[in-house]
Structure formats: C-alpha cells, structure tokens
Lab assay of single mutants.
Amino acid sequence: LQLFIKTLTGKTSTVEMEPSDTIENLKAKIQDKEGIPPDQQRLIFAGKQLEDGRTLSDYNIQKESTLHLVL
C-alpha cells in the first residue's frame, strides 16, 4: 500500500509498504529515502505516536494514509 509521509517542512514523500510491515520497517524505508536515522523519527497517525514493534495493520493504516514525521 502507498503511504504519504509528511514532514514539518510540508514536504511529502511516498513509500510503498505492506499492511504486515512494522513501524520499524517503515522508519528504515524513510531512512533510505530521506537519510533520517530511525531513532530520530517519530511518526504520528490519527494523533497517536506509532511504536516500532507494531504493524501498520495494528494501527489500521490504510492505503494512501498520510503519516506525520516529527524529528
């Protein structure tokens, strides 16, 4: 599924993920695209901070969801 990652600067990146992927996997993919180390990334979806060990489906993240990346 395609996700949009929006940064505080207003920049939006697109990443392709599976519902079974963990937040950790997602942060690794963001690191590949943006060069931001996972330990500096905080991802927010629906007002919640996402935890590394959980999966996208745990948070009911659907295709074309927008996640907010806070550093």
Rank of each mutant, 00 (worst) to 15 (best):
K6N: 05
K33T: 11
N25E: 12
R42C: 11
G35F: 04
E16Q: 11
L50A: 02
L3M: 04
K6W: 09
Q2T: 15
V15K: 02
K48V: 14
Q31I: 03
T12W: 12
T12E: 06
E64H: 15
T66V: 14
I23Q: 00
E34N: 11
N60S: 11
K6G: 03
T12P: 05
L67S: 01
E64P: 05
S57A: 14
L1G: 04
K63Y: 10
E18S: 13
D32H: 12
L67I: 15
Q31T: 09
K27Y: 03
G35N: 07
D58H: 12
L67F: 04
D21Y: 04
N60F: 09
I30R: 00
L43W: 06
F4M: 07
E24K: 12
I23R: 00
T55V: 07
G47P: 01
N60K: 09
A46Y: 09
L67N: 01
L71W: 12
N25L: 14
T7S: 10
E51D: 09
L67R: 00
K48D: 06
P37E: 08
V70L: 13
E51W: 05
Q31G: 09
F45C: 02
Q41E: 01
K6R: 11
L1C: 05
A28G: 09
M17L: 07
I36N: 03
K11Y: 12
G53M: 07
Q40W: 09
Y59V: 02
L3H: 01
K48A: 09
P38Y: 13
S20W: 15
D32F: 11
S65K: 04
S57D: 08
E51L: 09
L26I: 07
L3I: 13
Q62Y: 09
H68C: 11
D52G: 07
L43D: 01
Q62S: 11
D39Q: 12
S65Q: 08
T66C: 06
L50R: 00
Q2N: 10
K33E: 08
L50Y: 00
E18A: 12
V70H: 10
K27T: 01
K6M: 12
Q2A: 08
D39N: 11
L43N: 00
T14I: 14
I5C: 03
S65C: 05
D21T: 04
L43V: 07
I5V: 07
Q41L: 08
P19R: 08
A46F: 09
Q2L: 15
K33G: 06
I36F: 12
K11L: 11
G35K: 06
Q41K: 01
G10K: 03
L67E: 00
L8F: 13
K6C: 09
L1M: 13
G53R: 09
D52M: 05
M17Y: 12
S65I: 05
L50F: 01
P19V: 09
V15E: 02
R54I: 05
E24N: 09
L1Y: 11
L1Q: 04
F4T: 11
E18P: 04
D21K: 03
L71T: 09
T7K: 07
I44F: 15
L3Q: 02
S13E: 07
T66I: 14
T22S: 08
I44Q: 06
L1S: 04
D58T: 05
S57L: 11
Q41D: 01
E34Y: 15
D58E: 11
F45M: 05
L1E: 03
A46C: 08
Q62F: 09
S65E: 08
T66Q: 06
L71A: 08
K29L: 10
K63P: 15
S57G: 09
A28V: 11
T14D: 04
Q2K: 15
T7C: 13
D39Y: 12
P37S: 08
Q41M: 14
S13Y: 15
I61W: 03
I23F: 02
P19H: 07
P37F: 05
E51A: 08
V70T: 09
